[in-house]
Simulated scan of single mutants.
Amino acid sequence: MGKAKNNKFKRPRFSAGGLVKEVMDNEDEVEVEVDSPAAEHLEKLQSPCADVRECACASISRMVQQSQTIPSFLQRDAVRRLGPLLLDPCVAVRETAAGALRNLSVCGGPEVCEDMVKQDILTPLTKLLRECCSGFDVSPSQKNSKSTVEDVANEAVNLLWNLCENSSRAVSVFNKAGLLDVLVLCLERHEQKVELALSA
Rank of each mutant, 00 (worst) to 15 (best):
P110E: 13
E111G: 09
Q46A: 10
K3T: 11
K44Q: 14
G18N: 06
P48V: 08
K5M: 12
L86K: 05
V173C: 11
R169Y: 04
D115E: 13
S36F: 05
Q119L: 09
S15K: 11
L104S: 02
H41C: 02
V149W: 10
E165H: 09
P89N: 11
Q192M: 07
T148Q: 12
G99V: 03
L86V: 08
P84G: 02
V93K: 06
S15W: 05
C55S: 12
V173Q: 11
N158L: 15
S61H: 05
E195T: 09
N158R: 15
D115V: 00
Q46I: 00
E150V: 01
E33C: 05
R130K: 12
R62S: 13
K118S: 09
R13A: 13
V106N: 07
F14E: 09
L42S: 01
T126C: 13
T69C: 00
V64I: 09
Q192P: 00
D88T: 09
A78E: 03
S134Q: 12
D137T: 10
E165T: 00
L185I: 01
L196P: 08
V152P: 02
V30A: 10
D151R: 02
V79N: 01
V79T: 11
E40I: 04
G17R: 12
S172D: 14
F73G: 00
A153E: 08
D120N: 09
G109R: 06
E54V: 04
D51H: 11
A197C: 14
L183E: 07
K176R: 13
R80Q: 15
L180K: 03
C57M: 06
V93N: 10
L160Y: 06
V152R: 04
V152H: 04
N103Q: 11
V93P: 05
E33N: 13
S72Q: 01
L187A: 02
T96L: 10
L104H: 00
K146W: 06
D88E: 10
C132Q: 10
L101T: 02
Q142A: 12
E95T: 06
L187R: 07
A177S: 09
P84K: 12
L196T: 06
V20P: 00
S147Y: 08
S67H: 10
L185Y: 10
E114V: 03
A156R: 07
R189K: 14
L179V: 04
S47R: 11
L159Y: 07
F73V: 01
Q46E: 13
S141F: 07
T123V: 08
K8T: 12
N175E: 14
R102A: 02
P37C: 06
F73Q: 00
L187C: 14
V32H: 08
Q75L: 05
E33Q: 15
G18R: 11
L101W: 03
F14N: 06
A170V: 05
A38C: 11
A97G: 03
R11C: 00
F14Y: 14
G135N: 15
V184L: 12
Q119N: 10
V91G: 00
A4E: 13
L45A: 06
R169G: 00
A50G: 08
V20Q: 14
L179G: 08
S47V: 05
E33M: 14
V149T: 14
